[in-house]
């Protein structure tokens, strides 16, 4: 577990350094994710080193968003002033993205003979 956590945090740190250094418009964690993938592929890390820590974080991913959700209260005034436009745009647009992405993925994957 500890080794896994050290690897995950270490790769995030490397990702943060790289994105800052190369001025990439990406969070360091996304680069860290790609580094973990590359490291596992290259045999630098073994699956059982990171498995426990990764499982713990991923099976509780939704919990980690709760504080950001509570943060909405700080901007309550701004949101209250534009609530109708914001809620219609956010919900309708989310449904449109789900439909466009899901349909095109399913259609293209089937066409590709899968």
């Amino acid at each position: 577990m500890l080794r896994g956590m050290a690897i995950l945090l270490g790769l995030q740190l490397v990702g943060e350094v790289l994105t800052r250094w190369l001025e990439m418009p990406l969070p360091g964690s996304v680069v860290g994710m790609l580094l973990l993938l590359a490291g596992l592929r290259a045999g630098i890390f073994r699956v059982d080193w990171v498995k426990d820590a990764a499982e713990l974080l991923l099976s509780n991913l939704s919990l980690l968003f709760v504080p950001a959700g509570v943060g909405v209260m700080v901007y309550a005034d701004l949101i209250a002033r534009h609530w109708l436009a914001l809620s219609v745009a956010a919900s309708l647009s989310t449904l449109i993205v789900l439909a466009v992405t899901g349909w095109s993925a399913q259609y293209l994957a089937r066409k590709g003979g899968k």
Partner: peptide
């Protein structure tokens, strides 16, 4: 902890 959790997504991608 969202940071290391995003990094951890590399594992299911690898598998």
């Amino acid at each position: 902890l969202l940071g290391p959790a995003v990094v951890a997504l590399g594992l299911p991608l690898y598998q």
